[in-house]
Structures are given as C-alpha cells and as structure tokens.
C-alpha cells in the first residue's frame, strides 16, 4: 500500500501508507465500511460495537484504549463469551488495536505495541 485515497460516495478521503485516514474528521460510517472491505472484514454488530467504543473512548482521551479496557467493555455488553481477547482477534485478525482503529478512523497506536 502507499498513501492515497478512499472513495466514499464520490468523495476522496486521503489516507497514509498504512491505510489510516489523515484527517480524523473525514470519518463516516460509509467510510468505515469501505476500509473494512479493504481489510477483508464484514462489519457485524459486534464489529460496530468495538468501533463505536473506540471512537467514544478516543473522544474522551485522545487515544485508543488498552486492549484490556476494550475487552472489559465488550464483556459488559455481550457477556464473557465475546468479552475476551481471543474473540476480539476473531473479529479483527490483525489485532483489535491496529485494525479496529483503522476502521474507526483513529490514528494507529504507536510504540512497542
């Protein structure tokens, strides 16, 4: 991949080399579907739950939550069957933090993560 644009409803949304959108305000649900498709992910209610939680958390803290916090939130909502690390990786095979952040239109978590 190289830096480029996502096409959403005839509009171009710029993204960086790794597919993370450059302007966070460009995000929309339609865009999330487009990115998810790129990532070979069909967005289900559970996927949306993760994406929405990430966006709310980011709104408050300007950063994505720790995996553990995300797991807890999922547990609260869907019960222990879906509130665990393994399930999150089933939803987002390339890691709930990075892949879900990409779809949620948030910056990529950086560092040793």
């Amino acid at each position: 991949m190289s830096a480029g644009y996502y096409e959403v409803n005839g509009k171009q949304v710029p993204h960086d080399e790794e597919g993370y959108i450059t302007n966070l305000s460009d995000w929309s649900k339609e865009l999330a579907e487009v990115i998810a498709k790129q990532e070979n992910i069909d967005m289900t209610d559970e996927h949306w739950e993760v994406v929405n939680f990430l966006r709310e958390y980011y709104d408050e803290y300007q950063i994505a939550p720790a995996i553990r916090v995300l797991v807890k939130a999922m547990k609260k909502k869907f019960g222990p069957e879906k509130g665990n690390n393994k399930y999150l990786y089933e939803l987002f095979p390339y890691g709930p933090a990075k892949q879900a952040c990409k779809i949620a239109g948030l910056p990529k978590p950086t560092g040793c993560v």
Partner: peptide, 10 residues
C-alpha cells in the same frame, strides 16, 4: 508505555 496498553505487557 506498552505496559499501559498491550498484552502481555500490562
């Protein structure tokens, strides 16, 4: 800072 964020660091 990964200790605040990632598994199994935390």
């Amino acid at each position: 800072s990964a200790d605040f964020f990632a598994e199994p660091h935390i």
